[in-house]
Design a binder for these strands. Structure first.
Lengths: 226, 226
DNA sequence: GCACAAAATCTTGTACACAAGCGGGCCGCC
DNA sequence: GGCGGCCCGCTTGTGTACAAGATTTTGTGC
């Protein structure tokens, strides 16, 4: 058996499940940016009272996925191009930090896990399953942050990714994605295996920066079309 | 008159004021780390019902100042030495980013504001008023992030500082603080004026890293004494 | 017909009551 | 006498009613 500390299966309260439900609805686009969240209507639709729903909305607002104005209600947040740029900018800096720390602390086990996740992403791209790629990619970044061993870093990056997740389609539908990630896979694993913190940091920063440019380009194109 | 965009004085709801009150109580040490937050007792003490109090506690929990376990209540968070280390690590990376961006975008006005805040801090130290120095220092960092022009960055740094604020005494009671900050003041202003992003980033990173080491040293010393 | 104002209506914020889960203490059993 | 299970008290979670603020609609005066 492994010696991992087990989580004592915390009881999940209603507002937590409501939070996750809303997260799913927003992520799936059912609740599109700008949609007002009518508390009564949503509560009825989810089969709960307003109390846990309000708690869930408050959390989403705190995380920046929803804007909540006093007495005026909440609505799914609309991000401006500049804000999206800013999200990626912060994320790039923190992913670089995570990579640097992870390289320094990397174990054989951790490296194997990360390699497996990168492979998973590649396999998904080969199969044309962009959705699966996105999930594997998210797990890769999460694992990397985990190895870095800094809870604040992990949580902050999680928060950024939750917001960025809304534009994942723009990031993942780029041409040549498969070839690019295949190249990067080797470089990243190599840097991590060599415990080359600077190298890993630079690679991750470039990686995020490239996504950032892709997304911004698509956004501005899309805006021009209008 | 200045041409600053004016905030339309948003109505402040009760749970917001309760949040601020709790923040003050925690910051002042009235609610020390580990203190359980009894909802009934706190609500009575603040003259408020449990509903807005719970909202405020939920926000504090989300920000990481309080831990909240289902059906077991909330308590003021106790930070481990490793967690404090991690907080400063993330903060250093983001302050560096902020400095880099701020240097690139710096205006004469902004530079004057920042110089004034640094001077204010120096004056406070000269007068032996550590509390005033802490406030001026916080405003300096906030102004720098503001000039960087990335709301996500500003908010993330604010969140980190709110948590770090709990250990400010450890950081501000170091010997030679005044001389050090006086030296740094010149270097930072110079780098910003020259729009030297790399230089400003390095300076801020060093600055935070130095605080980090000071705080950690004091913490380990204090632990050994026990 | 238009502009402004006041009231009606709807939505969110707060208070309170009830339900659900946890911890401690007690009792019985081995 | 020690251990395990059960019951009771207490705290937190959820539902609901009422209050406060915002929006819309309607009415009135010009």
């Amino acid at each position: 058996m492994s010696a991992e500390p087990i989580e004592p299966l915390r009881h999940q309260t209603l507002h937590e499940r409501v939070y996750e439900a809303l997260l799913g609805l927003i992520g799936a686009g059912v609740l599109a940016p700008g949609t007002p969240l009518d508390e009564q209507a949503l509560a009825a639709r989810l089969g709960v009272s307003r109390t846990p729903l309000r708690a869930a909305i408050a959390r989403l607002a705190q995380e920046g996925l929803v804007v909540n104005l006093p007495y005026r209600g909440a609505s799914v947040r609309r991000f401006t191009v500049a804000e999206i740029d800013g999200l990626y900018e912060v994320r790039a800096a923190l992913e670089a930090l995570a990579a640097r720390k992870a390289a320094a602390r990397m174990s054989a086990d951790g490296l194997a896990t990360i390699a497996a996740l990168l492979d998973e992403g590649q396999a998904a791209l080969a199969a044309g399953d962009v959705e699966a790629y996105g999930q594997a990619d998210a797990r890769f970044h999460r694992a990397l942050a985990e190895v870095a061993g800094n809870p604040t870093l992990t949580e902050t990056l999680d928060g950024l990714r939750r917001r960025i997740h809304l534009f994942r389609d723009l990031a993942n539908r780029q041409p040549g994605l498969r070839e690019r990630t295949a190249r990067e896979r080797e470089l990243i694993l190599d840097a991590l295996a060599r415990r080359d913190g600077d190298g890993a940091a630079a690679l991750l920063e470039q990686h995020i920066d490239h996504i950032r440019r892709t997304v911004l380009q698509q956004l501005t194109e899309w805006e021009r079309e209008k």
